[in-house]
Simulated scan of single mutants.
Amino acid sequence: MSQPYVVRLFGSKHDLFAAALARICDAIVASFEQVAPGPDAARDLGDVYVRLLGDRDKLRVLMHGFVAGADPTFGLQARRTLVRAFEIFKELTGEDDEAARNFVASGMLINVLLAAEAPEHADEHGVGHLLVCAVGADAAAELITDAA
């Protein structure tokens, strides 16, 4: 895509990225909001999140937005998304702050591992073990197989 085309459609590359980040964050929140409340909500939220992680390009945009938090637009979007994920977890599961924090923190660890291409390098010292700890043995095996 040429720069003049980006400028014509979005005004700037910054605005293009802001639109992409907002779309991805909105999709994550909307997906979480579709989960039914109750005793299976924590598992179902985790399943939704694993499905969302299937698109590595979206994951990379999300991670870039989170680390580019010094930009007021990106930082605001990142914070809102993390807060909303925290709130949704509590609302749907009835769990406390610690459980919600663990859900969000685990999600961020998984994001970082996938952005760092951990499944593709699971044979490096400690990488495979950390991946198993983050997502569980079955999901790690699937990620590693998909990466091969």
Rank of each mutant, 00 (worst) to 15 (best):
P4R: 03
P4Q: 05
Y5R: 12
Y5G: 11
V7H: 09
V7C: 07
V7P: 04
R8K: 14
L9M: 11
F10I: 13
G11H: 11
S12N: 06
S12V: 09
K13F: 10
H14Y: 14
D15I: 10
D15G: 10
L16F: 15
L16Y: 15
A19L: 14
A20M: 12
L21E: 08
A22F: 10
R23W: 13
R23C: 11
I24Y: 13
D26M: 04
A27M: 06
A27Q: 10
V29K: 04
V29N: 03
V29H: 03
F32P: 01
E33R: 05
E33P: 04
Q34W: 00
Q34E: 04
V35I: 06
V35W: 00
A36L: 01
P37S: 01
G38C: 01
D40T: 04
D40I: 02
A41Q: 01
A41E: 02
R43T: 02
L45V: 03
L45W: 06
L45T: 03
D47E: 13
V48G: 06
V48I: 09
V48T: 08
Y49T: 04
R51S: 05
R51D: 00
L52G: 09
L52I: 15
L53C: 15
G54A: 11
G54K: 11
D55G: 15
R56M: 15
K58M: 11
K58Q: 15
L59T: 07
L59E: 05
L59R: 09
R60W: 10
L62F: 11
L62M: 10
M63V: 14
F66H: 09
V67L: 08
A68L: 08
D71V: 10
D71C: 09
D71I: 08
P72N: 08
P72W: 11
P72E: 12
T73E: 14
T73Y: 06
L76S: 15
L76C: 14
Q77P: 07
T81Y: 08
L82W: 13
L82Q: 14
R84K: 15
A85L: 15
A85Q: 15
A85H: 12
F86W: 12
F86Y: 13
E87I: 14
E87Y: 09
E87M: 15
E87Q: 12
I88N: 13
I88F: 07
F89C: 14
F89E: 11
K90F: 12
E91T: 15
T93L: 07
G94C: 07
D97L: 08
N102D: 08
N102C: 08
N102A: 11
V104F: 03
V104E: 02
M108W: 12
M108T: 06
I110R: 11
N111V: 10
V112L: 05
L113V: 05
L113T: 05
L114A: 07
L114V: 13
A115S: 06
A116R: 10
A116T: 04
A118F: 05
P119G: 04
E120F: 05
H121D: 02
D123E: 00
D123L: 01
D123V: 05
D123P: 00
V127G: 03
V127Q: 01
G128I: 01
G128F: 00
H129A: 11
L130Q: 06
L131W: 00
L131S: 04
C133R: 08
G136D: 00
A137F: 01
D138V: 05
D138F: 03
A139V: 05
A140N: 01
A141V: 02
A141S: 01
E142Y: 01
E142N: 02
I144F: 03
I144K: 00
T145S: 08
D146W: 04
A148K: 07
